[in-house]
Simulated scan of single mutants.
Amino acid sequence: MTLQHQPPESLAVFPLPIFLLPGGATRLRIFEQRYLRMVKEASRGDGFALTVLDPNRPESCTPIAAWVSITDFATLPDGLLSIDVMANQLVELTNIHSEPDGLRRATITHYPHWPEHGQSLDNQQLATLLENLFAEHPELNNLYPAPRWQNANWVCARWLELLPINATSKVGFLAADSFTECERQLINMVVDKTSCAE
Rank of each mutant, 00 (worst) to 15 (best):
A66H: 09
D192K: 14
E116H: 04
S82Q: 05
R105G: 05
P63C: 08
G79C: 15
T71M: 06
G45E: 12
R104K: 07
Y111I: 03
R34G: 06
E198H: 10
W67Y: 13
I70A: 03
P63M: 09
Y144N: 03
I83M: 05
K40E: 10
T107I: 04
E198I: 15
S178Y: 08
I165D: 12
N123A: 09
E32D: 14
T180W: 01
E99C: 03
M86A: 09
P63A: 13
V171E: 07
S82T: 00
I30Y: 01
P77D: 10
T168M: 09
S169A: 11
P7W: 12
D192E: 15
S10I: 06
C61S: 00
L80K: 06
L126N: 03
D177T: 12
D122E: 07
L103Y: 00
G47C: 04
L21Y: 04
L11W: 10
I83P: 01
E9F: 13
L160N: 11
R158E: 08
T194E: 15
C196T: 06
R27I: 02
M38V: 02
N56S: 11
A66T: 15
F19I: 00
P77H: 11
T128N: 11
V171M: 08
L28N: 05
L36P: 00
A49N: 12
G79W: 15
W114S: 04
V68Q: 02
E183M: 06
A65Y: 00
T51M: 06
Q185M: 10
P115H: 03
V85S: 07
G47A: 09
P138H: 04
R57C: 05
W114M: 03
P58Q: 01
N141L: 14
D192C: 05
A66L: 12
P55F: 11
L20V: 07
T194Y: 03
P22C: 05
R105Y: 09
P8W: 09
N132L: 08
N56C: 14
E181H: 12
L133G: 02
V68F: 01
E99S: 09
I108G: 02
W67N: 03
L163W: 10
V91K: 03
E9T: 13
R104T: 00
L163C: 05
V68I: 04
T62A: 08
G47W: 00
A175Q: 12
P145H: 00
L129E: 05
D54C: 08
R37K: 08
T62D: 14
L162Y: 02
L129Y: 11
I64Q: 14
I108E: 12
A66D: 10
S43L: 13
I83E: 06
I18M: 09
D84S: 10
E116N: 13
A197F: 08
L129A: 10
T75A: 10
A176C: 14
T180N: 05
T75H: 14
W114D: 15
D122L: 15
C182D: 09
D101N: 13
S43I: 04
R44V: 15
Q124L: 06
P7S: 12
L50K: 03
L103W: 02
A152S: 14
L174R: 03
T109R: 07
Y144G: 00
F31W: 13
D177K: 07
P8R: 11
R29L: 08
S10T: 09
N132R: 07
S69F: 00
T71S: 12
W67R: 05
L163R: 07
E131V: 03
T107D: 13
L21N: 12
P7D: 09
P58L: 01
L186N: 14
L174A: 12
A157D: 06
